[in-house]
Design a protein around this nucleic acid. Structure first.
Lengths: 166, 166
DNA sequence: CTGAATTTTCAGAAGTTTTTGAAAACAAAA
DNA sequence: TTTTGTTTTCAAAAACTTCTGAAAATTCAG
């Protein structure tokens, strides 16, 4: 396999995996492209390399900036913006956790809190309140774990792994 | 809020969250419905409750069985199949981990292995092989952690949490 | 077997998400 | 101020996913 083929394959499969995870395929491909680029790239280079339109490139670069997975670089004397990816995997994962926790886990917790206050009068509702209580407990634990995880450093992962298999 | 409103809200937001995670919204709603149902339900009851077609109900019940999140129950003297949800949250999460690890993480690991063997001749490919090596290390660690996690019991979560915030 | 109840399938319809590309907005240089 | 290079926006088109419903297949009791 040549380097070019390898890059191609990497970008493709990074995009595929991301779309399984509810993340736009193109956004992930742009990320992958910048991850393996030796130098920061312009929007035009991204468009050309991935064969996507200007609008698409712009939107996804913007989203990646917003997620903190890509950064801007301005070169002195140039008007074009250059983009480069955050390459530290631990930081990448942390940014994704922050973003998705806020967007997805927190609203769910809010609903669980609301719904837990249902008057459990009829016996028919027993099952409901019990399941909700259970999920609520679990989700709160997940939320706290994520909080701690986000604050921790790259070694945490290894530490937990060792702790777990021990 | 009445019990009925609560159930409604729960089903809706469970579906919403799932679709953020690349899981079919209806599949998650069927799961939510069965989670809070006091008794096993037939396909007809599911259809009626969620206002979906027979085909849709059938497909999603099938998928849930396949993911191990819902089980079948046959009642003596009845031809209809009854369905009930796996209610233990730890088991639910474990089943999801097993399924997604196989479908999503493992193919990525395979690609990373292949791609890591690219001949790093030109200096241009330095950046590529380095990033790939990094991601590969990280993903393998994640994979091992998941394996251990899948084998472990419900207390693991609490244990790790205590270990982490300590 | 036969026939009624039930489940499964799948082609086309409906719905949703992503992409395009041209026009508008913006920003720096002349 | 005007020109030129660059980024942003957004309505419409394309692509993709999910859902429907009727027909086919299956299952089981009689």
């Amino acid at each position: 396999m040549t380097v070019e083929e390898g890059k191609q394959k990497f970008i493709e499969s990074w995009g595929k995996m991301a779309s399984d995870w509810g993340i736009n395929r193109t956004m992930a491909q742009v990320h992958a492209l910048l991850l393996i680029a030796p130098e920061p790239m312009t929007a035009d280079q991204v468009m050309e390399h991935l064969n996507i339109s200007r609008g698409n490139a712009n939107m996804n670069l913007r989203a990646l900036l917003d997620w903190g997975l890509v950064h801007k670089q301005l070169k002195a004397g140039e008007r074009k913006e250059y983009f480069y990816a955050e390459k530290d995997m631990w930081t990448v994962v942390r940014q994704i956790m922050i973003h998705r926790k806020k967007r997805e886990l927190e609203p769910m917790l809010k609903v669980l809190d609301e719904v837990a206050n249902v008057e459990a009068t009829c016996p028919e509702s027993e099952s409901f309140t019990e399941v909700v209580k259970d999920i609520r407990l679990f989700s709160n634990k997940a939320n706290q774990t994520l909080d701690a995880l986000i604050k921790s450093d790259a070694n945490w992962f290894t530490n937990v792994f060792l702790h777990m298999v021990r």
